[in-house]
């Protein structure tokens, strides 16, 4: 049951940013993540500041030179169904379409999907873990089947977003507005590992709000895909997934981005996998080599060793499919 809070509908981004700089205030967009956190007492808030009156944050606009500007309040359904995204950034359309359920995609926003809190069952449950100010990571001695195989330290959650790895693979930038103005951050630098912070998952400072996500024009010869493996057909987070963007030239891979979901506390870019495929034709042997390279250095916990062959399988399958 929700505790009591007051509600404020911000009239401007500035007003929202000012309100959000107070520690007892939370920003409300689609609410699909925040309300669950409040209901389960994962977060506390005395006031919610809604962005939903801010039309500047809504919708998809053309960017300079053929790119796209995605308002932070754009719903996941809009992303998944947008013609240009389907045609030129299929990895993002596929990632957005794989989130939750139709209801969640209709309500959930792109900005919210990037800023959602961890889905670790200890963090969401009635366990006072390190990320909630406690002194234990319950996954360390407990059930770690859904936890990370890369990037864990003191906390072993996985980043729950599907769109984040797709956007990192597309080298997207995120526009952030705070009381002291606006800054542009590459999405690959937006997320924070537990080694750097145990209480926040992004570089957002108090009062900062994600307003827009910027996509460069698609590269010539680009192909992309998002593959997500989950335990049930819908309404489920990734056990593991991969967002892959490659640009082909003369039958060989010119550039490549391979970003994994469900395996690390941030969208996990595998430069080893990328190096394995760049400069080579995309065939089955290269796919196997890249998949093997991607899991080098994985350090599974007691219950999630399966994620190593899973990542391998996902990459073999998806790279092979992209070759066709």
């Amino acid at each position: 049951m929700l505790s009591q809070f007051s509600y404020q509908r911000a009239a401007s981004i500035k007003e929202a940013a000012e309100a959000a700089s107070r520690p007892d205030v939370r920003i409300l967009a689609g609410g699909t993540d925040l309300l669950g956190c409040l209901r389960n007492q994962v977060l506390q808030a005395n006031r919610l500041v809604s962005l939903n009156g801010l039309s500047a944050l809504k919708g998809i606009r053309q960017g300079p030179g053929g790119g796209l500007r995605l308002g932070a309040l754009t719903t996941l359904t809009e992303i998944a169904e947008h013609r240009q995204i389907l045609d030129s950034y299929s990895v993002l359309a596929q990632a957005a379409a794989s989130v939750g359920s139709p209801q969640l995609r209709n309500q959930g926003t792109l900005g919210g999907n990037l800023c959602q809190r961890p889905r670790c069952w200890y963090f969401r449950g009635d366990f006072k873990c390190r990320r909630k100010g406690g002194d234990t990571c319950f996954a360390e001695g407990g059930d770690s089947q859904l936890h990370c195989i890369f990037g864990g330290a003191s906390c072993y959650m996985v980043h729950p977003s599907d769109t984040a790895p797709a956007l990192v693979a597309l080298d997207a930038k995120v526009s952030i507005t705070g009381r002291r103005g606006t800054r542009l951050v590459p999405l690959s630098s937006f997320f924070v590992l537990p080694a750097d912070s145990l209480v926040k998952e992004t570089v957002l400072q108090p009062g900062e709000i994600v307003t827009e996500i910027l996509l460069d024009p698609p590269q010539p010869g680009a192909r992309s895909a998002y593959r997500k493996v989950r335990e049930r057909g819908a309404f489920d987070f990734a056990l593991a997934g991969a967002a892959i963007v490659v640009a082909m030239a003369e039958g060989k891979v010119r550039t490549a981005r391979v970003v994994l979901s469900g395996v690390a506390p941030v969208p996990w870019r595998s430069t080893d996998a990328e190096k394995t495929i760049i400069g080579k034709p995309l065939d089955a042997a290269v796919a196997v080599a890249a998949a093997a390279a991607a899991v080098k250095g994985a350090s599974p916990l007691a219950d999630n060793g399966y994620k190593v062959p899973l990542v391998r399988g996902i990459l073999e399958e998806t790279l092979t499919a992209l070759a066709a």
Binding site: Y122, D126, F127, F138, G141, G142
Partner: peptide
């Protein structure tokens, strides 16, 4: 959860 006896 075997450590705490709580449902995860």
């Amino acid at each position: 959860d075997a450590v705490t006896g709580k449902m995860a």
